[in-house]
């Protein structure tokens, strides 16, 4: 804060400093000449930092391409197969989007359960979070895909008709369920923390107006919590885009599966993996940009952004 004010003054000062070196009036107060030097130095330091960071990033990029060059990376091979790999993007996006939607719904229900005074809701939510967070996603994916039909068979034998077919899931729905349920458990804790971070005074003000618990949650608590949980939720989304490659375990031709197949077939895995990594990275950069936009939008009314 102090630094920001100093910068503000510094910017005011540099506008005129070329013509003036004596103390000058700024809205009634005068900044002494020595202070100008200090303020200018602060500003210059900021400028130097920005410039040097840009140079360093450029140098890093050049170095990486230089590396690509000396290891004789086959760019024409990459160009030839990029279209084929990109066809898998649809599956990746479909799985990620549906799974994150499921995870959002589950996390809100989970958080409400975790905060509920109802013993049944509370224990279901607690068990859900504990079980899912405590087991590998890999195992869960196979559980939905390979183990569930077996459960269906057992239930069918117990006399529930049609259950085996219903529980024998194709690869993509199984992947969406596995990812959504898993991320929902992690996000439950994020949402719960967001809700609990809203001061008790907000709930009391809502109650004092005569709101029910549900109204207070919907109108007052949750909208404020949402702003806080957007960054960690975006984190989860970015992680999920990459974890969606786990559906390839079930033979779904998504991004990474295609890259690995082609790489192995022509013994050019390096090219294919760099290419697919780059595609994932681009998707995440776009998401990050969207996150920043949403955050700025949500921060209306917050003094810190003005």
């Amino acid at each position: 804060m102090v630094c920001r004010e100093a910068l503000f003054y510094a910017s005011q000062v540099t506008l005129r400093s070329s013509s003036m070196s004596v103390p000058q009036e700024t809205g009634g107060s005068s900044i002494p000449a020595e202070a100008h030097a200090v303020l200018e130095e602060i500003e210059n330091r900021q400028k130097r930092f920005k410039r040097n960071t840009t140079i360093a990033l450029l140098a890093l990029t050049v170095f990486i391409f230089f590396l690509f060059y000396i290891i004789k990376l086959d760019f024409s091979f990459m160009a030839k197969w990029v279209g084929f790999i990109l066809t898998g993007m649809g599956v990746t996006l479909l799985v990620s989007l549906l799974a994150i939607s499921l995870a959002c719904v589950l996390s809100i229900l989970g958080a409400l359960g975790r905060l509920s005074k109802n013993p049944i809701a509370n224990s279901i939510a607690t068990a859900y979070v504990s079980l899912i967070r405590g087991t590998p996603l890999l195992v869960q994916v196979y559980m939905w895909y390979l183990a569930l039909p077996q459960l269906g068979k057992a239930l069918e034998e117990l006399g529930i008709p049609g259950i085996q077919n219903a529980l024998t899931l194709p690869a993509i729905p199984a992947g969406i369920l596995a990812l959504g349920v898993c991320y929902g458990a992690y996000m439950t804790e994020t949402v719960r923390a967001g809700i609990q971070s809203i001061t008790i005074g907000q709930r009391e003000a809502a109650k004092a107006l005569g709101m029910t618990e549900t109204q207070a949650m919907r109108r007052i608590i949750f909208p404020q919590a949402l702003r806080i949980i957007i960054p960690p939720i975006s984190n989860e989304f970015i992680a999920m885009i990459k974890d969606s490659s786990l559906v390839s375990l079930m033979g779904v031709w998504e991004l990474s599966y295609r890259a690995i197949k082609i790489g192995r077939r022509y013994f050019q895995s390096l090219e294919m993996l760099i290419l697919v990594a780059f595609i994932y990275w681009l998707m995440c950069v776009i998401l990050q940009y969207a996150q920043e936009k949403i955050e700025t939008h949500m921060a209306r009314g917050d003094r810190r952004v003005h």
């Binding site: 001061t199 009391e204 003000a205 909208p223 702003r227 009314g301 917050d302």
Partner: peptide, 8 residues
């Protein structure tokens, strides 16, 4: 502490 709703 007033407790106005800050998002409104």
């Amino acid at each position: 502490s007033f407790n106005l709703f800050p998002h409104m």
